[in-house]
Design a binder for these strands. Structure first.
Length: 301
DNA sequence: CACTTGACCTGTCCGC
DNA sequence: TGCGGACAGGTCAAGT
C-alpha cells in the first residue's frame, strides 16, 4: 500500500479538492470494502459536507458536518480518486519508468475512466463531481463512525508515534524499539505499534541509508545506529512526500496521478542494479516474510 | 507477553 | 499459448 508518504499525499490532495463539498449519494459494491449497511448510515452521509481530511499512520479520516467520520485504509491497492469531469481517454505508449517498473496505467498520469471494475465505493457530490474508492485486492476498507469514536478503534489505540512530527526525537525513536528487542529491525520497523506509517519501501530505503542489515536483531544495534536510522527514515519519507509518493504498481494520488519517488529509490525494487554508494550489485532477500532489498557489501549483520 | 506464519483478494509475471 | 506457482506496497488472527 500506500505508506505514510502516499497517504499523506492523498490527504493533501483531498484537502484541496473536497473540503466543503456536499455528499448527495453513496453507493458501494456490497463487498466488505464498506461494511456498514448503507441503509443504516445514509442519514449521516447524505446532505453532509466535508469539513476536514486527516491522516494518522496509514489511515485517512474524512470528517463530515454531521460529526461522523469516514475512516479509510487503502491497504495494498486502495485508491481514493476525485473526478470532477470525465477524463479523456488517451492511448499513449508506456513511459520508460512504467516499462522499468512493470507497467502501469496506459496513460502517463490520469487513470482510466471511473468507475471501473475495481471501484468499491462511490460518493457523488452536489456539483456533479465524484470521489471513488478503488481497490483491486479488496483488502482496504471504508467505514463510517462518530468522529469522537475514531480514537477508540483498536488500531488507533495501539499505533506508535508519527515519525515526521517536529517534536519526535531520536531518543524517543530508539526507546520505541525496546519492546521488540528480540526480533529483526525490519520486522520492528514494519510494526505499526512501534512507529507509525513505515511499510516495505521506506523500511528498505532507510535501512540502506543507515547501512543496517534488515535481519539484524534490534538488541544488537547500538544507539548510534538508531540515531542514524531515525534521520534516514525521516529524510526518505520527506523526500517521498515532496515527490508525491512512490508509484510501484497501483498507487495514485487524489487526482489519479502517480508519484515519482521510485525514480529516486536507492535499493527498493533495484535488485541487479548498482548500489548508488559503492557500485555493488543490489540483491533481494527475504526478511520478516517480506521481499527485502540490500547492498550486500554495506549492509552486514 | 513476544514473535512468526498464514490468511485475506485479484492480478501479473515467470518458468515449464 | 496455457498452466501452475510465486509474489505484490498491509494488517490481523491464530499459532508456537
Amino acid at each position: 500500500m500506500p505508506e505514510l508518504p502516499e497517504v499523506e499525499t492523498v490527504k493533501r490532495g483531498l484537502n484541496k479538492l473536497i473540503i466543503g463539498r456536499k455528499i448527495m449519494a453513496v453507493n458501494s459494491d456490497n463487498s466488505k470494502s464498506f461494511p456498514n449497511a448503507l441503509s443504516d448510515v445514509k442519514q449521516f452521509l447524505i446532505g453532509s459536507k466535508i469539513t476536514d481530511v486527516r491522516r494518522r499512520a496509514k489511515v485517512l479520516m474524512i470528517d463530515l458536518s454531521t460529526k461522523y467520520t469516514l475512516v479509510i485504509h487503502l491497504k495494498m491497492t486502495g485508491q481514493l480518486v476525485f473526478v470532477k469531469l470525465l477524463p479523456t481517454i488517451y492511448n499513449l505508449p508506456p513511459t520508460a519508468s512504467e516499462t522499468r517498473y512493470g507497467g502501469g496505467h496506459p496513460t502517463d498520469s490520469l487513470i482510466g475512466v471511473l468507475p471501473d471494475k475495481s471501484t468499491r465505493v462511490m460518493f457523488d457530490f452536489d456539483d456533479g463531481s465524484h470521489l471513488y474508492f478503488n481497490d483491486q485486492r479488496k483488502f482496504g476498507w471504508v467505514r463510517l463512525m462518530p468522529t469522537v469514536e475514531v480514537p477508540n478503534i483498536d488500531f488507533m489505540k495501539r499505533v506508535g508515534p508519527e515519525p515526521l512530527e517536529s517534536d519526535f526525537t531520536p531518543k524517543q525513536f530508539a526507546q520505541r524499539f525496546k519492546r521488540r528487542a528480540r526480533t529483526t529491525i525490519k520486522a520492528a520497523l514494519l510494526d505499526q505499534s512501534v512507529i507509525a506509517g513505515v511499510g516495505n519501501i521506506y523500511a528498505d530505503e532507510s535501512l540502506w541509508g543507515a547501512k543496517i542489515h534488515p535481519a539484524t536483531k534490534v538488541a544488537d544495534l547500538p544507539n548510534s545506529k538508531f540515531h542514524l536510522l531515525y534521520s534516514e527514515l525521516r529524510s526518505v519519507m520527506n523526500l517521498s512526500i515532496e515527490k508525491g509518493g512512490s508509484t510501484n504498481r497501483n498507487y495514485v494520488n487524489a487526482e489519479g496521478k502517480k508519484g515519482s519517488y521510485m525514480e529516486f529509490a536507492r535499493v527498493f525494487r533495484r535488485e541487479g542494479l548498482a548500489c548508488p554508494r559503492c557500485g555493488t550489485e543490489i540483491i533481494k532477500i527475504r526478511v520478516a516474510g517480506r521481499g527485502t532489498h540490500i547492498c550486500p557489501k554495506e549492509q552486514k549483520i
